[in-house]
Design a protein around this nucleic acid. Structure first.
Lengths: 168, 168
DNA sequence: CAAGGAAAGTTGTTTCAACAATTATTCGTT
DNA sequence: AACGAATAATTGTTGAAACAACTTTCCTTG
């Protein structure tokens, strides 16, 4: 018999498992907040991520698969995701005549306005998510997360550990 | 013009946003590995989590919504998830005569055997996910993640910061 | 310049997640 | 014991994720 505590939390198989489950859990809790926010704009966090990438590239366009590669979360269903965004008017697609294989995606003025509308509420959401952590803790967290994911990032990914992919 | 570095990574709006996006990214990278593993057993990580909870409770059964509450990731579709697990024979449901409102869920012997089959490959997967981090880094990571999620955990959650919910 | 092969997207299909609305059962109060 | 409120679970519906198979276009190379 143990010492008599009534509420026993989860018991972990290994420190690695514990870290992974805590990561999963924390991700899920914070995601709830984002989902609520984006839901009020009839958009998903994935879609927002995509629009931000297009905004950063704007006024240039990005090819579909380049876009998919840059997304935070992998997106094998990129085509239909673009379908939805296009039908809502946030993005435009263009199949250039000189290379009919690729599709160039760009954000529309309406899409840019949408991002502006979201900007402030989203900043507030981020404060609600993690505003209770000090700058130092946030930096530590980022550093540890980068170290955790680094071996699983492709060669020059900006998400990998610094020093591996930095400009030399 | 900037100082001439060619590859500019993502630019963040705030440290909170950076931490959140890094968390999201790291979660996604690590999840890929788990998904592969569980996929080879024709199960999802959510389903595995559920089976582990039932294993821990075994030989007792858990009520459906209690089960849903204990899951790492919220699961509003618990009913159909149980449908699937039941049709595969991993769990059993019982509607007791003395309280026909609740449904008691328990893991079957076949379910327990499945967990045994998964145990070793999964431990290997966890090593692949995070085995490159030392014990200290793992502990730091867990501590920071707990702190990050703590305000968003319900009262006595075992995932919240220690000291808030610990046995007194 | 023609054939094979690689690259870029699309489509088909199945499964899963989210949210709301609904049913079924129990509990509390009179 | 009957009514309304609360609780527990299911169902309906829509939208999105995962994976594979398939088309179209371009590139290479003999």
């Amino acid at each position: 018999m143990s010492s008599g505590g009534k509420k026993k939390g989860p018991v972990f198989d290994s420190p690695q498992q514990q870290a992974w489950l805590q990561l999963w859990r924390t991700y899920d809790r914070l995601k709830v907040l984002e989902d609520q926010l984006f839901g009020s704009f009839e958009i998903s966090s994935q879609q927002y991520n995509l629009l931000r990438l297009l905004e950063a590239a704007s006024p240039d366009a990005l090819r579909t698969l380049d876009l998919a590669r840059r997304m935070i979360s992998r997106s094998p269903d990129i085509t239909r995701m673009l379908d939805r965004l296009e039908s809502q008017g946030w993005i435009a697609r263009d199949r250039p005549k000189d290379n009919r294989r690729t599709v160039l995606v760009s954000i529309t003025p309406a899409g840019l306005r949408l991002l502006q509308k979201i900007a402030h509420p989203l900043a507030e959401c981020h404060r609600q998510q993690l505003g209770h952590l000090g700058r130092e803790s946030l930096a530590d967290l980022v550093r540890l997360l980068r170290a955790a994911g680094a071996p699983h990032e492709p060669e020059g990914s900006p998400w990998g550990a610094p020093g591996i992919a930095g400009p030399r």
